[in-house]
Design a protein around this nucleic acid. Structure first.
Length: 424
RNA sequence: GGAGAGGUGGCCGAGUGGUUUAAGGCGGACGCCUCGAAAGCGUCUUCACCCUUAAUCGGGUGACGGGGGUUCGAAUCCCUCCCUCUCCGCCA
C-alpha cells in the first residue's frame, strides 16, 4: 500500500506507475474521496467537540440539581447530525480503503520500462548448456521411467497437476530441502521458520495477495482460511503489528513450506509435467531491512539464492523484470531461470523482490530507530531459495546418463546418501 | 464442541455512567547534582487523523481486543465476533 499522503502529493507519478504495471485503478477517484473524507472529518470533529462540551455541562447541572431537559434536546440534535455525517464518512473511508489496496507499488527508477517478457533484461548467465552424446529425455520420460514421479496417481488422488514423488524422487525432494536449508542457515545465517500453511485474510492482504489474487488461491471456506501460495506470506507477516528496532535489523528468515496455487486460467501445453503444479515445495528467504539498506541487501539475497544453483552445477541466468512484468507489490525484481536441457526452456525457479515499505505499511510492521525517533516502515524483501519442481526438472535432465541413470551432484550426495539414481 | 474467567499505553496494573482530560508503578528520554558515575531530585513519555502553518509551534477529534447498539454523555451497560487462560468432551 502506498501512503495516501504520497498519492495526493504525487498523483501523476502514481498514475504513470499504474499504467506501467498494466493495472487499473482510478487514482482521481482516490483524490476526490480523500477530499470528501477530509471535509467530513473536519465537520465531525467540531460537532463532537461541541457535544463533548455540552455533555460535560449537563453532568455539572445534574450535580447542582438544575434542569437539563432543554440542553439534552440540544445535544440530541447535534447527535443526529453527527450520526448522519459519520455514516457518510464510514462509506467514504470504506471505498477509499478498497481503492488504496488496489494501487500497485511504484517501480524503482532503475527498473527497465517495458511492455512484455521480451523487455526483461538478462543481467548475467552462469555456466553453460550441457551437451549430450545421446538424445536426452525430458523430465517426464525420466521421472516416469525411473519410477520416481507419478503423474497419473497424483491425478487420481487430487487432480491434474498434483504429482506424486516416489522412492528416490521423494528422497530427492527431502535432500534438496535439507541441502538448501543447511546452506542458508549455516552459511548465510538465516533464522529457520516453520510457519502455518493456512493464513487469514488480514495476513493475505498484508503481503499483497488480497484483494487482487483471491481467485488464484485455495480457500477453506468454512473457516475463511487461505492455503499459502508461498512462505513469503506467513514469514513476512510474522512481525505484523510489531515495532522493530534498528538493532534487530537486518532480519533474515528462511522457511521451507509447501505452496498451493490454483493457477486459474494458466493451463496449456506449456505446463506439462512438473512445470506448473498446484502444490509444490519451496525454500523461501525473507528479509526485513532498514530502508536505506534494502537495495544492497537485495543483491546479497539474490546471491544467496544463486549459490544454490551454482552448488548444484545448474546452468542459469539472472533476469531483471521490466515494469510490465513486475508483480503488484514489488518495486524491483530479479528472476532466476534455470536451463532445462531436454525441455529446452529457461524455467523460473526464484523471484527476488524488493517491496520497499509497501508490504510493511499493509501489514503495519514498523520501525523505531531510537526512543525519541518517529515511527518508520522497514523494507521487506524475499527470494525463493529455491522452488523444487523446476529445479528437479533441470537437475534430472542435466545429470541424466546414457544408461538412463541420474548422477547426483556432489554437494547433494550426503543428503541423498547415494551418488546416483540407478537406471530401472 | 460445552462451561467458566479474562483482553486497559513499550511492559505491569487501577478503574462498574459525568474533574479519567486513563491513577500508580516499571522501563525510557532530558535536565540538575558530580571530576565522572551511581543514588537522589525535577521535567517529560502512545498512535492515527483533521484544522492552521513555508515548516516548527499551536488547536481539535478518535483509539481501553474488533464491530454494532443504548444514552445528553460509555474503558464502564447491552448485542455480536475474535483471541488468551482453566475445566470438560473429542482427537493425531
Amino acid at each position: 500500500m502506498l501512503d495516501l499522503k504520497f498519492i495526493t502529493a504525487n498523483p501523476e507519478l502514481v498514475k504513470r506507475s499504474v499504467v506501467l504495471k498494466n493495472e487499473s485503478v482510478d487514482v482521481d477517484k482516490i483524490l476526490s474521496l480523500d477530499n470528501e473524507r477530509r471535509q467530513l472529518k473536519t465537520r465531525i470533529d467540531s460537532l463532537r467537540a461541541e457535544r463533548k462540551k455540552l455533555s460535560r455541562q449537563i453532568g455539572e447541572l445534574i450535580k447542582q440539581g438544575k434542569e437539563t431537559e432543554s440542553l439534552k434536546q440540544n445535544v440530541k440534535e447535534v447527535g443526529s447530525q453527527l450520526a448522519e455525517d459519520e455514516e457518510k464518512l464510514r462509506a467514504v473511508e470504506y471505498e477509499l480503503k478498497e481503492l488504496l489496496l488496489r494501487v500497485p507499488n511504484i517501480p524503482h527508477k532503475s527498473v527497465p520500462v517495458g511492455k512484455s517478457e521480451d523487455d526483461n533484461v538478462v543481467v548475467r548467465t552462469w555456466g553453460e548448456k550441457p551437451h549430450f552424446s545421446f538424445k536426452p529425455k525430458d523430465h517426464i520420460a525420466l521421472g516416469e521411467g525411473l519410477g520416481i514421479i507419478d503423474f497419473k496417481r497424483g491425478a487420481k488422488l487430487a487432480g491434474t497437476h498434483f504429482p506424486v514423488f516416489l522412492a528416490a524422487g521423494a528422497h530427492l525432494q527431502r535432500a534438496l530441502v535439507n541441502f538448501m536449508l543447511d546452506l542458508h542457515i549455516k552459511k548465510h545465517h538465516y533464522i529457520e521458520v516453520a510457519p502455518p500453511y493456512l493464513a487469514n485474510r488480514r495476513t493475505m492482504t498484508g503481503t499483497g495477495q488480497l484483494p487482487k489474487l483471491e481467485d488464484d488461491m485455495y480457500l477453506c471456506e468454512r473457516d475463511d482460511y487461505f492455503l499459502i501460495p508461498t512462505a513469503e506470506v506467513p514469514v513476512t507477516n510474522l512481525h505484523q503489528d510489531e515495532i522493530l528496532t534498528a538493532a534487530q535489523l537486518p532480519l533474515y528468515y528462511v522457511a521451507y513450506t509447501a505452496c498451493f496455487r490454483r493457477e486459474a486460467g494458466s493451463y496449456g501445453k506449456e505446463t506439462r509435467g512438473l512445470i506448473r503444479v498446484h502444490q509444490f515445495d519451496k525454500v523461501e528467504l525473507v528479509k526485513f531491512t532498514l530502508p536505506e539498506d534494502s537495495y544492497e541487501e537485495m543483491e546479497k539475497l539474490l546471491n544467496d539464492a544463486e549459490e544454490v544453483l551454482q552448488l548444484l552445477g545448474l546452468h542459469y541466468r539472472v533476469v531483471e523484470l521490466c515494469t510490465a512484468e513486475l508483480s503488484f507489490a514489488a518495486a524491483k525484481c530479479y528472476d532466476l531461470e534455470v536451463w532445462a536441457p531436454a525441455t529446452q526452456r529457461w524455467l523460473e525457479v526464484s523471484s527476488c523482490s524488493n517491496f520497499e515499505d509497501f508490504q510493511a505499511r499493509r501489514s503495519n510492521i514498523r520501525l523505531r530507530r531510537s526512543a525519541e525517533a518517529k515511527l518508520e516502515f522497514p523494507h521487506t524483501l524475499n527470494a525463493s531459495g529455491i522452488a523444487l519442481p523446476r529445479t528437479i526438472i533441470a537437475l534430472i535432465e542435466t545429470y541424466q546418463q546414457p544408461d538412463g541413470s541420474i548422477t547426483i551432484p556432489e554437494p547433494l550426495r550426503p543428503y541423498m546418501e547415494a551418488d546416483s539414481i540407478p537406471a530401472p
